[in-house]
Design a protein around this nucleic acid. Structure first.
Length: 457
RNA sequence: GUGGGUGUAGCUCAACUGGUUAGAGCACCAGACUGUGACUCUGGGGGUUGGGGGUUCAAGUCCCCUCACUCACCCCA
């Protein structure tokens, strides 16, 4: 096809009015709930310096960054062979990239503004970009809806971010966890507990990441599958078996009590933290949804403490995730500031709501199309439209004057509930003939009364 | 990154094992009612069958390459 493609780039989408009605509805609930928890909004630039982004997400994450090429002279210089004859690298050609998540930009902001509240609680709803391969529910440009609390190690903060996202989902109509119609669960685990398990099993520290990724697949590929993958990654069969013995096939494994009293002091401390978190959250909105999952790993490398992930029936991936990252802000400043956050994936939430038909009727488009006859001056029609809009109606004025049938047909395709007809008779008595499109009934009434009539439905 | 599938009108899809001029529904436009739509009737526009190459008397159909989309896995939100 020699024509220019009219599709957006792979993994990116245009949002037409019906899409936006649903997206804005969900975003509205999220922002309102987050604010009710005392979070204040933040927006950061689309573009960040690569020095900000690199090294925060792990090796795979760095590969998924969209990078901006240098421009003009800078690019020309970067492309020249170096004195030692080597070719330019990615880092020579670019020093900026699109943000990959909202957590790292937050960390930068907290490090950059010393005057922020001691306990900075911010929410942020913006798109992020990942050069991933698109799939169902996965895009290259997608919205994250983050809440984070910076400045405290208290597990109350962990419980609060869990409570905020749980409240959002409940307000959007997601059911209680025990509801057969399909609720949602917030899986929790602890990075330190995972590290203790790996160490206990005799797996080398440098294999830790790979071991955890394999373990995360337990519910999908089973114990044998995990063991095979561990061995494939160069981990001794004995160590692999040892790791798996700490968790049974169902992934349920020993209770937190067992871990809390286990031989590894490090693991015990982590387990006690999780116990405390569950107990703090018990009385709040997240309480019923929290479930300890010893196989939960999560890929992002900046997590240090409790980690979270939201799952629900029928969704392959997760609806959201988060965790504690006490070291990340310290990568941008000498001050070590602990923080914990949670992120909802807007598209994932929308996907599930779509599949389950969870959207309420959402108003969109004009309530009334103003039609007129050719003998009515445009200025007179504009005046009437202005009057109706001032009365609070969403009014579209048909720009031309084709046959009335055409104008009404257009009102029909727009989905406007009403059409108003302005002709010589109506103009003379400052009235409109109002037609209800669904039934065809119509009546003539004073312009001043039209808004109330339309609003009444 | 691995494996599978699909590309035909604006949209959803047909076209038997290769065989005349590639069809239908919806949508769009125009017409019976020049102050009345959504339902009915009639007519009409619209396609180099994703692109390129090959096999053949003949290719939407078979083969190769390429591009795009899509599903599963991987990973994630």
């Amino acid at each position: 096809m020699s024509q220019i493609s009219t599709k957006p780039p792979s993994g990116m989408r245009d949002f037409l009015a019906p899409d936006l009605a649903r997206r804005r509805h969900v975003i509205g609930v999220i922002a309102r709930v987050y604010e009710s928890f005392g979070f204040t909004p933040l927006e950061t630039p689309t573009i960040e310096n690569l020095s900000t982004l690199l090294g925060k997400y792990g090796p795979e994450g760095d590969q998924l960054l969209y990078r901006l090429l240098h421009r003009r002279e800078r690019l020309a210089r970067a492309l020249e062979p170096k004195p030692d004859g080597s070719r330019p690298t990615e880092l020579d050609l670019s020093d900026e990239g699109l943000r990959y998540d909202l957590t790292v930009p937050l960390a930068r902001v907290v490090a950059n503004y010393g005057e922020l509240p001691a306990f900075y609680k911010r929410y942020q709803i913006q798109p992020v970009w990942r050069a991933d391969r698109p799939a169902k529910g996965r895009f290259r440009e997608f919205f994250q809806c983050d809440v984070d609390i910076c400045g405290t190690k208290s597990l109350v903060a962990d419980a609060e971010v869990c409570g905020a996202v749980a409240t959002v989902l409940r307000e959007l109509g997601f059911a209680k966890p025990d509801d057969p119609a399909g609720g949602f669960q917030i899986h929790v685990n602890h990075r330190e507990l995972l590290r203790a398990m790996v160490a206990e099993a005799g797996i080398a520290a440098e294999k830790e990441g790979q071991a955890l990724i394999a373990l995360d697949k337990l519910d999908k590929i089973g114990a044998d599958g995990v063991k095979a993958e561990l061995i494939e990654k160069g981990i001794a069969a004995e160590a692999a078996s040892s790791l798996l013995s700490m968790i049974d096939d169902t992934g349920a494994g020993p209770s937190l009590d067992v871990w809390a009293n286990g031989p590894s002091e490090r693991g015990a401390a982590a387990a006690r933290e999780l116990q405390e978190l569950l107990s703090i959250a018990a009385g709040g909105p997240a309480g019923a949804h929290l479930v300890f999952d010893p196989t939960l790993a999560r890929g992002l490398s900046y997590y240090t403490g409790p980690i979270f992930e939201i799952t629900c029936a029928g969704l392959a991936g997760s609806m959201g995730g988060g965790g504690r990252y006490d070291g990340l802000i310290g990568m941008f400043t000498k001050r070590q500031i602990p923080a914990v956050g949670f992120s909802l994936g807007l598209e994932r939430v929308l996907l599930v709501m779509e599949e389950r038909g969870m959207f309420p009727p959402l108003a969109a488009g004009p309530q009334l199309l103003l039609c007129r006859f050719p003998d009515i001056a445009p200025a007179a029609a504009v005046a009437v439209a202005t009057q109706l809009r001032a009365a609070g109606l969403r009014v579209e004025l048909y720009a031309d004057t084709p046959s009335l049938g055409k104008q009404l047909q257009y009102a029909n395709t727009l989905g406007a509930p009403f059409a108003a007809i302005l002709g010589g008779n109506e103009l003379a008595q400052q009235s409109l003939t109002l037609k209800r499109l669904a039934t065809g009934e119509q009546k003539t009434l004073p312009i001043a009364d039209v808004a109330a009539f339309v609003k009444a439905g």
